[in-house]
Nucleic acid binder design. Structure first.
Length: 441
RNA sequence: GUGGCUGUAGCUCAGGAGUUAGAGCGCCGGUCUGUGGCACCGGAGGUCGCGGGUGCGAAGCCCGUCAGCCACCCCA
């Protein structure tokens, strides 16, 4: 044995994708692209590697710690992007004059975070972001919700819930409770409500954040309002009566609900959830999270929100925006767990077994002819028993097998075998393309 | 970054200090040399994650390391 062999292995949190998984990934990306484009979002890309100063300090200490950061061969301090939003901030600051507003872009790209991997959490994963930059209009907030909804639906999900909240509403409550200066801590605690329960949240607020028990109670009451989205919002509106900030949030959410009704989004998929606060500090308006009803434990698969000033660190120009990010790999992990991997066929419908090795050139030639007519065709390369070849074809999901030996070649015919049913028909070579068109339509 | 659990054939796992490490499924071959999925028969495939230590002896015990999973943290 050879001890100098290198052990094939991947880094922690980094993965290979086999054809089945990769086909599903590509499918998801295609769907995302289609949905984004249908709303007028334009594609962009940015480098995987940025100057560290571009990325540092944008998501708080946490994201700094998760940065893959190193010195390049030219002694530059560089880091790999950990999301697509910060690169977007740099991008818009740099290219604003060429873009014009509102600027709607989508960006599907790999990002890297050096955190401890778990199920649905990797060190390398793909995000599918879309944002609308340069407008404060609630129209864009509403459209963002529509995009998320359509995206999930087009991806083939039926049982999902979009939870929506508005930071202004929360801030209004906090102002009234005299907690404006403690909002970050309070909201972070509040975000955990579904996970750790009201008791623990109240404890965290009083113990770590420093609120009074009454203040914690006020905030929790808001988060625990129940009823239909509209009822919930009406109650919240009463809680922040007379508070301008809070009322702004309420009226924006009211518009959003009205728009959802008018657009006839299934109402059970939209929830006003006042406990959704988002850990990230930079959201200032509407916030969104998307959960799979059948797998809530995996967390949000598509999250986002409105921010006042995307690129304040890069340009004087104030750039408000709203957008969200689909976690492709997390979604894929969820689909795998739910057994939702589509049994996508090989993508190539026609299989030509190497039935008679003296006719290899004939097989290759007809395959090429059929591809020119628009069919996907694969020729088996090895001279193996026909049964084995058909087994391979079956496993790989072909629809038809084209079989021919001396008999067929001498009479100018092909056997077309339907792999799913084992039935077979004979077709003249001249009619081959027309027949395949009919069978594969 | 902190804590816990796990790592034995391609997959799911059993075993557990003492001769050549097992099962099911899968894979390959044969029965079936112009036609797959079934059945029967046969076969290949493992330095028991990797490295070190203790032992007469380690896959098993100890330490380290790598990887996976779970909780915290955070998040897609």
């Amino acid at each position: 044995m050879n001890s100098s062999l290198i052990k094939p292995q991947t880094l922690k949190g980094f993965r290979d994708y086999l054809p089945e998984a990769m086909r599903s990934r590509e499918h998801l990306m295609e769907v995302a692209r289609r949905v984004y484009r249908s709303y007028g979002f334009a594609p962009i890309d940015t480098p995987a590697l940025e100057y560290s100063e571009i990325l540092l300090g944008k998501g708080g200490d946490e994201s700094d710690k998760q940065l893959f950061r190193f010195t390049d061969q030219g002694d530059r301090d560089v880091a790999m992007r950990f999301d697509l939003t910060v690169p977007l901030a740099r991008f818009t600051a740099q290219h604003l004059s060429e873009l014009g507003t509102p600027f709607k872009r989508y960006h599907i790209g790999t990002v890297w975070r050096a955190e401890k991997p778990q199920k649905g959490r990797y060190r390398e994963f793909v995000q599918c972001d879309f944002d609308t930059i340069g407008t404060t209009a609630n129209t864009s907030d509403i459209e963002t919700l529509f995009v998320i909804h359509d995206l999930m639906e087009q991806l083939g999900f039926e049982r999902f819930t979009l939870r929506v909240n508005h930071r202004a509403l929360l801030n209004g409550v906090l102002e009234q409770a005299g907690l404006a200066d403690k909002s970050a801590g309070v909201l972070r605690a509040l975000d955990k409500l579904p996970k750790i329960g009201r008791q623990s949240v109240a404890e965290e607020m009083t113990a770590s954040v420093g609120t009074t028990a009454d203040q914690a109670e006020t905030v929790l009451r808001l988060a625990e309002l129940s009823g239909s989205p509209q009822e919930l919002l009406d109650q919240a509106g009463q809680l922040v009566q007379g508070n301008e900030t809070g009322q702004l949030g309420v009226s924006r959410l009211n518009e959003l609900l009205a728009a959802c009704r008018k657009a006839e989004l299934p109402s059970e998929r939209i929830q006003i959830d006042l406990s959704i606060a988002r850990g990230l500090d930079y959201y200032t308006g509407t916030v969104y999270e998307t959960f799979l009803n059948d797998l809530p434990g995996i967390g949000s698969v598509c999250s986002g929100g409105r921010y006042d000033n995307l690129a304040g660190l890069f340009t004087q120009q104030k750039l408000p925006g709203v957008g969200a990010s689909l976690g492709l790999d997390r979604l894929l992990a969820a689909m795998e767990e739910l057994g939702l991997f589509e049994t996508v066929p090989s993508g190539v419908p026609v299989f030509i077994p190497l039935f008679d090795k003296n006719h290899v050139a004939d097989y290759l030639a007809v395959a090429r002819r059929l591809r020119a007519a628009g069919f996907g065709v694969e020729v088996f390369p090895d001279d193996r028993a026909l049964g084995k070849q058909l087994k391979y074809a079956d496993r790989k999901g072909f629809t038809l097998a084209l079989i021919a030996g001396d008999q067929e070649f001498s009479s100018g015919q092909w056997q077309i075998k339907h792999l799913a049913t084992s039935t077979q028909e004979t077709v003249a070579d001249a009619d081959l393309v027309a027949t395949l068109k009919r069978l594969l339509a």
